[in-house]
Amino acid sequence: MKVQAFFLGAVIATSVLATSPTVIAWSAEPPCDEIEIDTGTCQTAGLVNQAAGGVDLTGSAGGGGDQSRGSQESDAPQSGDRDDIQAVAPTDPPPPPPENCSPINVAICAGDPQPDPEDPAPAIVVTLRDIASFRPAKPGNGMEPGGWAIEDLPANFVAAASVEVVSGTLLGQPADVRFTPVGYRWTHSDGATVESGQPGANWATLGLREFSATPTSHSYAESGEYVVELSVVLRAEYRFAGSGWRAIAGTLSIAGEPQRVLVGQFDTVLTQGDCNAYPSGPGC
């Protein structure tokens, strides 16, 4: 039996500049013929005894973790290659950020300027102004789905920022400055602001279904085009050659690239074929 290819009758254009939409096809080849179904030798998704699941909308969500970032260094043990995104159990609340730091409470985010008792304090005091020439990398401002969202359904925003060490000259001496992200703020152009002590994590990492609410997600109430600005609060430390890390009082904030989000309504229909090719087909 020749089983015709099926398509979900949904077409997703990936860019506002796209002039021809892209059709998502899930299957192009017949997996089995009728005799294989009769005898039970066919293996395909349609021949698994299970209830129908939801429509799989996983698209090109890049997530913030996919974006490039600067050099990394962390005192904490690393697990896996996604060290910038901390996995959170689906049902557990997000762990409290370090010292309850948040963008609206940056005073707590500030590093402790107390010197290490074993490291004699230098005669100078380094301030944020002194390290102005040390520039941390822009944080990645990712989201899933990638660049679009569905009205009244959560879109998941994930920042990509990690501990970063930048080398340079400080007060005339070779020095390193270590930037540690301690707070994240997403400012949505619909007026909403989401703040977190964590960068967020992808749905898959969190073990959640797509379009689930997360600590860093946001739902847009109306269709349209929105812009999301990410601001990451960084704590800074410095060290000269041979000395230990010393905190710098205060915090600084660095912005990621604005993320554009197209929000629309979504509906699905089951069709026999591609509705663009066969607009009069059943269901189209």
């Binding site: 254009a13 506002v16 796209a18 059709v23 679009w148 269709s223 349209g224 085009e225 069709t271």
Partner: peptide, 20 residues
């Protein structure tokens, strides 16, 4: 409408594979 997005201004992104 299967999936439609109305972008601001003159730019409209229509995600529609099936027009009923």
């Amino acid at each position: 409408g299967v999936f439609s997005l109305a972008a601001a201004g003159a730019i409209a992104l229509v995600l529609s594979g099936c027009v009923g």
